[in-house]
Design a protein around this nucleic acid. Structure first.
Lengths: 217, 217
DNA sequence: GCGCGGCACCTACTTCGGTCGGTGTCGGCG
DNA sequence: CGCCGACACCGACCGAAGTAGGTGCCGCGC
């Protein structure tokens, strides 16, 4: 097998650091190579210890965990980051994911699962707490509902009308659309009008919203 | 501990059913109580065997796995459903999630993980293959990018303007907005105009799209 | 061949949306 | 106090959006 997994623990609470360290260090294949108490110390610690995985607390005093994660992930040979937090607000989750976290665990996760998560993340697999997974699933499902309906509605349109819908969905005016699609403004209007009746809508804004739901940028 | 977990396996390939059954049955705490070869047979099998978890193949002949899942989940005391499939198309994933699947695994998942997944799903935790999790994470992250920017832009608006934005984002006409917010049409126009300059936009459609990005339904 | 429906295109007319200018009100500040 | 800026509100004007109606052009079926 490969060498030991090198872990860096980042949390501004010494007690938590201790607990995590105790939980992880000594477990087969894992060794905690360092700790940091603050977002500022993280990059330095990462330089000296070259960890494979960083366990990152989210709410810290000076530089928060999100920013620290972003900084870490921007480096060459970036370590994987597992975010640990007490709060599962959408804010936190989405920010962390955008910052490049490979895992997002709530602090009530039982120790063996944390160990497991660290291993999986190190292997490149993403890890989320069940509650978070559920959120993401619900999110995706609801969105895809609108998507399906919108897509279905747009089926009834002709090719040219599709192009017009696309342009309308970008917030463009009729004149703009006309030049872009090489037709006169009245023709654009005719298309828009036809689209409105076919989709049973009242105005171009509703076209734009529908198209947006259908995934046209 | 609670009683054994009752599993129903649904796949139109007898070989696959056999393999899964062999993999799961006999494992501590799990027993395979039935099999079904087709979406049509599923409800009947569920009636007779009252499974806790259904392992559902997605691509089947007559009634596909999505429809079968939807039907199962609509019942009282519905079993949890884990979808198993070879293909990880967005289509499949989103449809399955919307149908009420509690888990989505690719068929290349190693056996122990499948066992584990069944247990977790039975306990109410959602389960996704790493590749799927990654997809959902990326999806959420990209969307939240636009969200942040839009939210920030809308900060500069007054309370009344916010209400107008909301209404515009629903595709409403000025007259509608006027009655709804108890003001005259010219006043609505004034607000819209002010919003346009503050957000540096050209027309109400763009307002609607921005607001949509900001999460105003 | 002929009629027919759908499409893309246009003109002329009506309605809606957006700009400009202006009023009254309120709270902050020298 | 008197001034200023922000806000909510309105009326008059004009350009853009949407409607009605009509033309030429395929491709289809009788």
């Amino acid at each position: 097998m490969s060498r030991e997994l090198r872990i860096l623990i980042v949390d501004d609470d010494a007690l938590v650091r201790g607990g995590l360290s105790m939980m992880l260090d000594g477990v087969h294949g894992i060794s905690v190579v360092g700790e940091a108490a603050d977002g500022d110390e993280v990059t330095a610690a990462a330089d000296t210890h070259a960890p494979d995985v960083v366990l990152m607390d989210l709410c810290m005093k000076r530089v928060d965990g999100i920013a620290a994660t972003r900084k870490l992930r921007a480096r060459p040979r970036a370590p994987e980051v597992v975010v640990l937090t007490t709060f599962d607000s959408d804010e936190n989750i989405l920010h962390a994911l955008r910052a490049g976290a490979g895992g997002f665990l709530l602090k009530d996760t039982p120790p063996p699962e944390i160990v497991d998560a660290v291993r999986k993340v190190a292997a490149g697999d993403p890890i989320l707490s069940p509650r978070i997974t559920r959120r993401l699933m619900d999110r995706a499902a609801t969105q895809s509902g609108a998507y399906e309906r919108a897509r279905a509605a747009l089926e009834s349109l002709s090719a040219r009308e599709h192009e017009v819908v696309q342009a309308v969905a970008e917030g463009r005016a009729n004149a703009e659309i006309a030049t872009r699609l090489y037709m006169s403004v009245p023709t654009v209007k005719a298309h828009v009008s036809s689209i409105l009746t076919k989709l049973d809508l009242d105005n171009r804004t509703q076209i734009a919203l529908l198209a947006h739901d259908a995934g046209l940028a």
